[in-house]
Amino acid sequence: MLPMDSAKKISFNRCISDGDLVIVYERHDTMKAVKVCENSVLQNRFGVFKHSDWIGKPFGSKVFSNKGGFVYLLAPTPELWTLVLSHRTQILYIADISFVIMYLEVVPGCLVLESGTGSGSLTTSLARAVAPTGHVYTFDFHEQRAASAREDFERTGITNLVTVRVRDIQGEGFPDEFSGLADSVFLDLPQPWLAIPSARNMLKQDGTLCSFSPCIEQVQRSCETLRSDFTDIRTFEILLRTYEVREWKMDHSKSDDGDSVACPPCKRRQPSSEASAGDKASSPAVMARPSAETRGHTGYLTFARRKCVS
C-alpha cells in the first residue's frame, strides 16, 4: 500500500500483477479489498470477473465481467482501506484520523505508541505518516483481534512499520522498553485516565498525546489526570459534512398566476421535476447541498503535551 519499494509504487508503467492487493470499486459505498490471484475469480451482482483479466492492466482500470458488468480496480490507500476493512471494533474515520496525525505532529521517523489496535484503521494511517524510518507499536488486550490486525498489516504490506502486541495497557501500562522514547502516544481506551501515567513515562519531553473518547465524562476525567504532567491540554470534536452535487434546470420565468412570488419556498422543489426541463427560460446550473444523512458524533479528541521540565 505504501511506496516503500519503488518497483511497486504506482506509476504509468506499473501494472496489476499476481499477488497485488486491489480495491474493487463498485460504487462510492460498495468496495472490497481483493488479493489478485491468477486462477481466482471475483463474483458479485455484476457477474464473474476473472483475475487473469486484471493482470497487466494499470491500476484505475475499468474491468468487465462475463455478463458485461464492470468495476474499477484501484490501488489501495489508507483512506480506501478504512472503507473496506472488516470492522472488529468501532473504527476511526478520515476526519478524526487526519486531525490526530496532524495534531500529534507525527512525521517520518517518529516512534508512536497506540492502544488499542482495534481494527487497525488509524494504525494504517500512522504507519503512512512515520514511514520510511519511524515505527508504530500498537497494543490490544484482545489476542484474536491483535492476530487479525497482524494479518491485515501483512496484507497491506506495512509490517515493517507496525508491530502489534497483546497487552492490557489500562492494567499494565506500556512496556518499560519504550520509556522516554515515544514522540507520540494515542489512546482509544474506555478508561484512558488509567493509562495516562504510563503514557507520560513513555513520552519524550514535549511529546504529544491524544486520547479519543466518545463520552464527555471520559474526557472530563482524562483532563483531570492530564493536568499534573501535561500542558497545552485541548479537546476538539471534528466532523465532516459532505455535499451532493447535481445539475438543475432553474426556472427563471415568472409564472403568469404569480405563484412563484406568492410561495417562494416552493421554488426550491419545482426545479426537481423533470417536466420543467423543456422550459424556454430555464438554464442549467450546478448546485450543491449537504447530504441529508450524516454522522453526528464520533468522539472527542483530547490532545496534550508532556511538560518540559529539564
Binding site: L74, T235, E237, I238, R241
Partner: peptide, 20 residues
Amino acid sequence: IGLQISEPWLREYQVLPSRT
C-alpha cells in the same frame, strides 16, 4: 472516481471541573 466534496467542522471544548 470516488468524488466527494467535504467540509470539515471543528469545535473546541473548554474542559474544567463542572464547567465543561
